[in-house]
Nucleic acid binder design. Structure first.
Length: 109
DNA sequence: ATGGTGACGTCGG
DNA sequence: GCCGACGCCACCA
């Protein structure tokens, strides 16, 4: 049960700098599963067991906190992001493209 | 082994 | 510009 995908997703998410966010699609693409962003999100479901995996820094391509409902509280994700210096409005990341952290460019660079 | 599901993404109307 | 449907691949029952 190596669960390679999980390991990879965790590794990337764990590398996300504080105050930055990334999208499922970006991670999926970095993993090579470009067409299956769902896998990334699903992997996050298991990430609950990992304290080093800031799932709250991972949002969808629109910058919406789609997974907020899976945290302890529906507002927990927003609270965590705001604590990182990220501005959240209506469950959406402001300046998403500005704080967006692209693993492909950052890691491959 | 098969079916169903999922914290998404993209295309079409 | 907004809404709906399909597709993707891995895990669980």
């Amino acid at each position: 049960m190596e669960q390679i995908f999980f390991q990879d997703v965790y590794a990337v998410v764990r590398l996300i700098p504080q105050g930055r966010v990334t999208s499922y699609g970006a991670i999926a693409k970095y993993l090579g599963a470009k067409g299956s962003a769902r896998m990334v999100g699903w992997a996050m479901n298991s990430a609950h067991s990992l304290p080093d995996v800031p799932a709250h820094r991972v949002v969808n391509s629109a910058g919406l906190l789609t997974g907020k409902g899976h945290f302890g509280s529906p507002t927990l994700m927003q609270e965590l992001l705001e604590a990182e210096g990220i501005t959240i409005k209506k469950d959406k990341v402001q300046d998403f493209k500005t704080i967006f952290w692209n693993p492909i460019e950052e890691l491959e660079l």
